[in-house]
Design a protein around this nucleic acid. Structure first.
Length: 816
RNA sequence: GCCGGGGUGGCGGAACUGGUAGACGCGCCGGACUCAAAAUCCGGUUUCCGAAAGGAAGUGCGAGUUCGAUUCUCGCUCCCGGCACCA
């Protein structure tokens, strides 16, 4: 090998070795401590972007480190292969979505290999293959039997550009998450999965995930949005049916001055039948609702329905309104309005001249006037008869008990979380395995008829789904009665595929079940790494799926991911890299120019993983420069005489100092990579050690032995980050083995010991001098030495010393 | 509004448990090599005063606790992310 660093050759050689030796292919081994290191799998969009390179590198560093720690490491890779871009490409280029997708996968797999990631490619999962989605369809039919999926006509978010239904999670500020088009409301029959049945468990288990970032857990809690309250039944004049409302503030019950229902509420609908003005108002609400619901300052509009509810305690009539701020989808679609103690109710009451009364007073007795502003704090109940004088909790219980005993109310928990609509009016997705029969209704496709294969060779017009124009696809027989029936032509939301792919990695090739016993060895995932943008959707669905699979007897794990690392975005010029903004940097170009190791090093050095990383061309140059220095240092050392074995007892002070640095570095890097995931500081420490070696000008045999030890340490500790160059340099240092198979270096406690240590002397907390003391010096000795320092004496002068604080090994502070 | 995270040199960032603020890298300045440039190597680089020794100030702002605060407490401010007529 030439002594000039040529990344192309070095990297090719290392890759050939890993391939030849099948280094990253792992099978289950119950005798060994497993480590499942997972990265969020990519969508095969065409080529890798910098965000991919960052997340895969983080994961690869962790995997390689854990491997050197002796763990049996699984790191798989696959493709989230269904989705809209394939359809868009098909429209634009006239190539079938399947063809486009498989071509992209082939290209991107090559890129991943070029970056040196240590994947077990035998376990590759491609979600658009029938072998994969077959089991997804199977689980769906199981859930169908259990009643955990259901079909209902529902008002959905319709994306007029993408011609599809969006999940609530896919609507951002009233716009489609991909198309950015204003979302409309439509009523369509949809399949739903009962994620709300698991709302409590999904919430509670968050407390059992110490390895997850607080930010993600908090977002999920927020999203699930649990709130405890009471459902109360109000009588309505001229109606047999009670009007049920949900409230979290039963203590304000006596402050109710009006009631409001949503536009879709049956009482509003009924009133509209006899009143054109109300009908017009409801129509207006329907039109504007979806589009404007997210707008921050939407005007509070409403109309009286001309009927009254009966207050359940006072028996007084309470006017009933229809209002645009009441949501049919939350609680019961009706609210009791307490304008004295709720901001929204107060605003509405003020606008429409409704009475505002006070029923809560501050516990500290301070004066308030609810005519000026609502008082929302918990306090003491007043003007409320049977609950007067109570605090919030007492009043809550008193109201609950009274209404429950009279069967006019019940304690209830409400969630913000909605059931997961999984139907998509799209072609490029897994077919929903349902057959519609005129006699039998919706029937699940039986297991022996799965998978329902998506035809891949299709004409793609761009409007709607081609499946609807393919009788050969949708015409079938009813599995129950055998009569002519037709298949569901909707496909699954792609989040369904990404909710269980990690389990499938653990059971590759299994064609008799979704997963087999190998799942139990690998699951749960020990370390999951991916973008913060998946904090809610993907991570919540995946947790939900884990519980579904557990309850189906497929897994024993409650939670799929023990530790979660969310990496920051890659920015350029302060903004997220995107084609729209034209601020992208193509990883391939960087790899071709500098090599994979340089790109990996830059990514890991420039910022800690959770922070945003600003791209810098100079920074890449710097990384490249460092690797050259590293290469040259090892090569020039290896070109010298082979050093004798290290004789620790024969070292002079300088040699011992370098050796101490070596072992300090091993200790620090181990902690930085293994515990803190601060790869940037691990690299910085390695750079320091290499700088120390380069400054060390002593070519005595023992010095060369100390240098050899230092260089070997740098090669090994950097090998998870820049594996190719380390692979080569390890050989240059005379080893036949490969770093990937070496144990992680241990630091020698004895090497860290020092005879003399430098400590800092402060006078009144300000740095005034440095002294060198024996490591075992006692406090009196240290104080004495500190006071002998010339500069310290200048500042102490003739002042009386009030106190001397000695922090062993660090500093002395003299207080005068 | 609520929840979470953050504010440190010209820049990315370091300081992990309250103990030397600015590690490491980038950039910049000076030097060596070169006819010259690039590359490479060596030295310097928080600001202000000083030739230097050394001193003063300094981690968004204001207070507090402490011998000692980037770190802890309180108040404010700005930025980023999430959620939001949720009853």
């Amino acid at each position: 090998m030439s002594t000039i660093y040529k990344p192309d050759k070095v990297e090719q050689a290392a890759r050939d070795y890993w391939d030849r030796e099948r280094c990253f292919e792992v099978d289950e081994d119950n005798g060994r401590d497993k480590f499942y290191c997972l990265t969020m799998f990519p969508y095969p969009s065409g080529q890798l972007h910098m965000g991919h390179v960052r997340v895969f590198t983080i994961s690869d560093v962790i995997a390689r480190y854990q491997r050197m720690q002796g763990r049996h490491v699984l790191q798989p890779m696959g493709w989230d292969a269904f989705g809209m871009p394939a359809e868009n490409a098909a429209i634009k280029r006239g190539v079938a979505p399947a063809r486009w997708t498989y071509d992209n996968i082939d290209y991107m797999r090559g890129q991943l290999k070029r970056l040196g990631y240590g994947y077990d490619w035998r376990r590759e999962v491609t979600t658009c293959s029938p072998e994969y989605y077959r089991w997804e369809q199977w689980l769906f039919t199981r859930l169908f039997e259990k009643g955990l999926v259901y079909r209902k006509n529902s008002i959905v978010n319709w994306d007029p550009v993408d011609q599809t239904v969006l999940a609530n999670e896919q609507v951002i500020d009233g716009r489609g998450w991909r198309s950015d088009a204003l979302v409309e409301r439509r009523e369509i029959p949809q399949w739903f999965m009962k994620i709300t049945a698991y709302a409590d468990e999904l919430l509670e288990c968050l407390d059992k995930l110490p390895g997850w970032p607080d930010s993600v857990k908090s977002m999920q809690r927020n999203w699930i949005g649990r709130s405890e309250g009471i459902e109360l039944d109000f009588g309505v004049e001229g109606e047999d049916q009670a009007l049920t409302v949900f409230t979290t503030r039963p203590d304000t019950l006596m402050g109710v001055t009006y009631m409001a229902v949503a536009a879709e509420h049956p009482l509003a609908q009924k009133a509209a039948a006899g009143d054109k003005a109300i009908a017009a108002f409801i129509e207006e609400c329907k039109k504007t609702h979806a589009a404007e619901a997210a707008m921050e300052t939407m005007e509070k509009k409403g109309m009286p329905l001309g009927i009254s509810a009966i207050h359940p305690i006072s028996g007084e009539p309470v006017p009933l309104w229809v209002a645009n701020f009441v949501l049919m989808g939350y609680g019961t679609g009706a609210v009791m309005a307490v304008p004295g103690h709720d901001e929204r109710d107060w605003e509405f009451a003020s606008t429409h001249g409704l009475p505002i009364v006070q029923v809560i007073e501050p516990s500290d007795g301070s004066a308030i006037d609810v005519q000026d502003a609502p008082y929302m704090e918990y306090g003491r109940v007043v003007n409320s008869g049977f609950i007067d004088g109570m605090d919030y909790r007492q009043a809550f219980d008193a109201v609950a008990e009274r209404f429950e005993s009279e069967d006019r109310g019940r304690r209830t928990v409400n969630y913000r979380l909605r059931d997961w609509g999984v139907s998509r009016q799209r072609y490029w997705g897994a077919p929903i395995p349902i057959v519609y029969c005129e006699d039998c209704g919706a029937v699940a496709v039986p297991e022996d008829q799965l998978p329902v294969v998506l035809p891949e060779d299709v004409e793609f017009t761009g409007v709607g789904s081609p499946l609807r124009d393919m009788p050969e696809f949708f015409e079938t027989d009813c599995p129950k009665c055998g009569r002519a029936a037709h298949r569901e032509t909707d496909t699954f939301d792609t989040f369904v595929e990404s909710s269980w792919y990690f389990s499938r990695y653990a059971s590759p090739g299994c064609d008799t079940a979704m997963v087999d016993e190998r799942e139990a060895y690998w699951m749960p995932v020990d370390q999951y790494t991916g973008g913060i943008e998946h904090a809610i959707l993907h991570l919540l669905y995946a947790r939900f799926y884990q519980k579904l699979m557990r309850d189906e007897g497929l897994s024993s794990a409650d939670e799929p991911f023990t530790n979660l690392l969310t990496q920051g975005m890659v920015l350029k010029d302060g903004a997220k890299m995107s084609k729209n903004k034209g601020n992208t940097v193509d990883p391939q170009e960087m790899i071709d120019r500098f090599g994979a190791d340089t790109v990996r090093l830059f990514m890991m050095f420039t910022a800690p993983p959770e922070q945003a990383l600003e791209w810098s061309d100079e920074g890449v140059q710097g990384a490249s420069r460092f690797l050259k220095r590293f290469w040259n240092a090892v090569q020039s050392h290896a070109a010298g005489k082979e050093p004798p074995p290290l004789d620790v007892d024969a070292l002079d002070d300088g040699q011992r100092a370098l050796r101490r640095k070596t072992h300090q570095t091993i200790a620090k890097v181990s902690d930085d990579i293994g515990r803190r995931y601060t790869f940037n500081t691990a690299i910085a420490a390695s750079m320091e050690l290499l700088n120390a070696v380069n400054r060390f000008e002593d070519d005595s045999p023992q010095s060369q032995a100390v240098v050899r030890e230092a260089l070997e340490a740098v090669v090994l500790v950097l090998s998870p980050i820049v594996p190719h160059i380390c692979h080569e340099l390890w050989h240059v240092l005379g080893h036949a083995s490969a770093p990937v198979d070496e144990p992680w270096p241990a630091f020698d406690e004895a090497a860290l010991a020092q005879d003399m240590i430098d400590i800092v002397v402060q006078v009144n907390g300000k740095l005034r001098g440095r002294i060198s003391v024996a490591a075992d010096a006692d406090q009196d000795e240290i104080s004495k030495l500190a006071l002998e320092d010339e500069n310290v004496r200048r500042f102490v002068a003739d002042k009386a010393i009030r106190k001397t604080i000695v922090v062993p090994g660090r500093l002395v502070n003299v207080v005068v």
